[in-house]
Design a protein around this nucleic acid. Sequence first.
DNA 1: CAATGACATCGACATGGGTACATGTTGACA
DNA 2: TGTCAACATGTACCCATGTCGATGTCATTG
Lengths: 123, 123
Amino acid sequence: MSMSLIPAREATLGSCTPLAREPITTEQAEGVTRLLKALADPVRLRLMSMILSYEGGEACAMCDLTEGFDLSQSTLSHHLKVLHDAGLVDRDKRGVWVYYKARPEAMGAVRTVFSSGLAEPQD
Amino acid sequence: MSMSLIPAREATLGSCTPLAREPITTEQAEGVTRLLKALADPVRLRLMSMILSYEGGEACAMCDLTEGFDLSQSTLSHHLKVLHDAGLVDRDKRGVWVYYKARPEAMGAVRTVFSSGLAEPQD
DNA sequence: CAATGACATCGACATGGGTACATGTTGACA
DNA sequence: TGTCAACATGTACCCATGTCGATGTCATTG
């Protein structure tokens, strides 16, 4: 079965529905909010954008993701942890370097919430 | 000219680009973050969803948007103000009632950021 | 004009979140 | 084994934010 493809973390991402069709439930709102809170920061949004722009949606933390930020190493590490805890990125340690990789399921869940219905309200 | 259709608030929504194509700029990130911060709350996400679900993407504050929330009137009013300040909804007072209406441009900007590229990382 | 109802605003409180410094952990290498 | 480099973690600080009660504003109605 294909269940094993998606880790348990997927549970919080499961029920994603476009906002505009019918009011989302409290549970759905809380699930999506976890993702949105993680993305609702300029630094993390840029980090996510940088990760996604790299080949394979993957980037090395200190190699690729430091440039352009005037922040300490611990702060960057903290932000990456927030993205990881939200299920937006996977972590892969190879030797000394740590690679962060975007999780398409998570970003897909966000995209689903804001899909079609949103720009054209119901009538 | 059609400029007048969109208020000055549009300025912060202007430059919206998919996250995955190339890294977004700091300015873009800060602009989008304003919208995301406003949406990254369970109550406000439900409010936005309820507003969008109503006919014409418009809903009366105390008539339509109170049901299902265990929050004080001032708290609901506060959340609606946050959505309004972010440019996500317009306010329209008709007599005693206040109607909140979704702004398609704002939701479209959010949707653009999370559009196509996001679920399928670059390769 | 007085009263009521539908909001917005203000002040206060508790909690959460971004940042940095210091320190811990782990793998590569001499 | 000792050192260094690439991280993560813990602690502390400060500011932002969610919540509520009280009050203010304004339109309707009697």
